[in-house]
Amino acid sequence: MPVKINTNSGKTIAYLSGEIDHHNAWPLREAIDNELRRLRPGTLRMDFGGVSFMDSSGVGLVMGRYKTLSAYGGRLELMNVPAQIYKVMKLSGIEKIAKIYRKDVNKGEDNQ
């Protein structure tokens, strides 16, 4: 599974890896939603540091998780977003619903 998820004190971190497209967005969605349903964390942090490619299917993945979270007042953070992925995200207006931290741009974040 190209995602590792752990939850600590109300914050769930999903470390995504590989490529996010229509073909492989589904298992990511299932894995993250299982965790959200089970633990209802206050914050979901999706970490894109290990993602090498994303198309608009990844936007659907982010938007969908935002819907799940906002239904109970949870927050969404997008971390370590690489340049190509940031470009796709910018088109979608995702920055209006989630804080985006870019890979190798924001100091103080893990840039791997």
Partner: peptide, 14 residues
């Protein structure tokens, strides 16, 4: 479902 409706927008912008 989770189609963002951005396919052509991405193509046009890129």
């Amino acid at each position: 479902g989770e189609r963002a409706g951005l396919g052509f927008a991405v193509m046009e912008s890129f």
